[in-house]
Structures are given as structure tokens and as C-alpha cells.
């Protein structure tokens, strides 16, 4: 869980913060998970990711990273690509992502793995915001068709 959070918040101590909050949240509200509609594992990680993204977006509004903390940054960039490379050969998700155009695939991975927003993805891919949004929606459609 710390690993998933760290790819998004990029700092070990923030990732621990996320896991702390998630654990307390689960302890209090284990019942908000409905086992009849999904896997517990996926649900758990979705909470970790949501919490990480919230923390990231809150903190980016409030403060920039102080110089002396840069050394503690979890290696940024490449986490999205790396996650794709590490997907098991047998993974249907890997096969379907492979069918996407490289840039569009990266957009999707940047959102899920690194928690980037539409705007950040557009900047990273060097395309206008509207284009990035349209790409992501079309990628989702292609993915769903492929995984069906």
C-alpha cells in the first residue's frame, strides 16, 4: 500500500501519512465496502489512491517542495512506464494497453499510477487540455472493448 501511495505522493513520509489515514478509515468503516459488487483488494487500493490524490492536490495548492526535501523524493517520472513494464505477461490489462497508441497509453498510466490530473497529463504529453481529455475517454472505451 505504501508503494502505491508513494508513486502518487512521491515522498515516503507522505505515503506513510496516506496509509495511516487509510488504515484508520478502514478500521472505522470496514462496512462501506460492498463485497457483492467488487474485489476487496481493488477496493482497498482505490481508497489508498483516492487518499493519495487528495493529499497531492491539497498540498500542491498550499506549498511547494522545500529544497532540502528534494533528496527524499521518491524517484519521479518513469513510474507510469515502469508500472506498465512490470505488468505480468499474462495480464489482460497489459495486452489491451499494448494495443493503445504509446502516448495515449502513457496518459492513462499517468492518471492511474502517478495520480496526475487532466491538466498535468496534457502538459506532460504536450497536447491541449481538450485533446488530452478526449484521448483519455477514447482510451477508456478501447480498453473496455478489449477487456470485455
Amino acid at each position: 500500500m505504501i508503494g502505491v501511495a508513494a508513486r502518487i505522493v512521491r515522498r515516503r513520509e507522505l505515503a506513510e501519512e496516506v496509509v495511516h489515514d487509510v488504515f484508520v478509515q478502514i478500521w472505522r468503516h470496514a462496512g462501506s465496502f460492498n463485497p457483492s459488487i467488487g474485489s476487496g483488494r481493488a477496493w482497498l487500493y482505490s481508497i489508498v489512491r483516492n487518499r493519495s490524490i487528495n493529499l497531492l492536490r491539497d498540498s500542491s495548492r498550499e506549498q511547494s517542495t522545500p529544497e532540502d526535501e528534494i533528496a527524499t523524493l521518491v524517484e519521479a517520472g518513469g513510474a507510469a512506464e515502469d508500472a506498465f513494464q512490470k505488468l505480468a505477461e499474462s495480464s489482460a490489462l497489459r495486452r489491451c494497453l499494448q494495443q493503445l497508441d504509446a502516448k495515449r497509453r502513457l496518459g492513462l498510466l499517468l492518471a492511474y499510477v502517478e495520480g496526475l490530473s487532466h491538466g498535468e497529463i496534457a502538459a506532460r504529453l504536450g497536447v491541449p487540455l481538450g485533446t488530452a481529455k478526449a484521448w483519455l475517454r477514447r482510451s477508456l472505451i478501447a480498453l473496455r472493448d478489449c477487456l470485455a
Binding site: 508513486r7 515516503r12 467488487g38 506498465f84 492511474y112
Partner: peptide, 21 residues
């Protein structure tokens, strides 16, 4: 809710690629 759970499930392989800590 079912739709969201389905997407979460489909993306969940990516969670397993994170470095265990």
C-alpha cells in the same frame, strides 16, 4: 457502483506493480 468496481478491478493489476515497502 458496479461500474466503478468493475473499472477498479480492471486496473488493479497496476497496483501489484508498486514496489513493496
Amino acid at each position: 457502483q458496479v461500474e466503478v468496481a468493475r473499472w477498479q478491478m480492471q486496473f488493479s493489476d497496476l497496483d501489484a506493480t508498486a514496489q513493496p515497502q
